[in-house]
């Protein structure tokens, strides 16, 4: 006998219902992340280790210091950020597009869950993967640097979470717009990777000649890398090597998050890429 009644439609019951929906998506995403760990966790760790070996040990040893810290130590925040950005983006774009491709996204579309809850659920999955990989990369870096002290754990952690948040949303938008698997590779290859490489991972943009320094300031990844680097080594880094003011960097990241989150909700409400 159908047990649903219209009695249980209070705001609190709707909130509770959406919270359970959110938990369900998060559990599903984390289960997926752990189930296919050879695809989700191992490759970014290996890639980053190669960066440490090639850019840090082989080339970096000839460069000496940058901004008053050993070059190997200087690139650690950038490499962690790079793995955070790629992992959060890739997790959401591949998971949501696979659901779209297999059509099991319909399970979610027919459900009473609010679109914001769906988006937050997938974002949480992307953030979880980014945090796992970011932490592993940070631990791996300890094999390559003598010491790695963190200037401010709250700054470091919040920048990492906000960055993962931003790129999880970006991955979701890519998945919404993608029609075939090629479409989910285009943005990471032709947009994300160049922006990351040019985002101050391996150098400070203050070292760039004009107009490239100014041009680089339009790259949002510069703000994330710079803020994360400040969180880790602000106390020992030459202030001239800090690309962006920390407060301004936070403001830009949050502004991007709010803008992209609103855009994605608008797309979901209209069924862009989901409903005919």
């Amino acid at each position: 006998m159908p047990s649903n009644t219209f009695a249980d439609v209070s705001l609190s019951s709707r909130l509770r219902s959406n919270l359970i929906g959110f938990q369900t998506i998060v559990i599903k995403e984390v289960t997926r992340l752990l189930r296919i760990w050879p695809q989700t966790i191992v490759p970014p760790v290996i890639t980053t280790m190669l960066y440490f070996i090639i850019f840090g040990k082989v080339i970096g040893s000839r460069l000496g210091e940058m901004g008053g810290v050993p070059y190997m130590e200087f690139i650690v925040p950038g490499l962690v950020m790079m793995s955070v950005i790629n992992s959060s983006y890739q997790n959401v774009v591949s998971s949501f597009f696979s659901s779209k491709f297999q059509r099991n996204v319909e399970e979610i579309l027919i459900s009473p869950m609010h679109n914001a809850v769906v988006l937050l659920g997938y974002m949480a999955g992307g953030i979880a993967r980014a945090m796992v990989i970011g932490t592993i990369v940070l631990l791996v870096s300890l094999f390559f640097v003598d010491t790695l002290s963190i200037y401010s754990i709250p700054i470091t952690f919040s920048v990492a979470v906000l960055t993962a948040t931003l790129f999880s949303i970006a991955g979701f938008i890519n998945a919404l717009l993608a029609r075939k698997f090629d479409d989910i590779a285009i943005v990471p290859t032709f947009v994300l990777t160049p922006l990351t490489y040019l985002g101050g991972v391996f150098y400070s943009i203050t070292l760039l000649p004009q107009p490239w320094e100014t041009v680089s300031r339009f790259n949002p990844i510069v703000y994330m890398v710079s803020a994360f680097r400040s969180g880790i080594m602000k106390d020992r880094l030459d202030p001239t090597m800090i690309d962006i003011n920390l407060g301004f960097a936070f403001a830009v990241i949050i502004l991007f998050i709010v803008g992209l989150f609103s855009l994605t909700l608008w797309m979901l409400d209209r069924g862009v890429g989901l409903r005919a």
Binding site: L19, G21, Q23, Q102, E107, I108, S111
Partner: peptide
């Protein structure tokens, strides 16, 4: 639906449990 639209790589128990979760159960 007419077409199979569940995740083919998940077991039935997980598929049905997830659907319940989406409905706030």
């Amino acid at each position: 639906p007419q077409e199979f639209n569940f995740n083919q790589f998940e077991p039935p128990e997980q598929i049905v449990m997830q659907q319940a979760g989406y409905y706030g159960i």
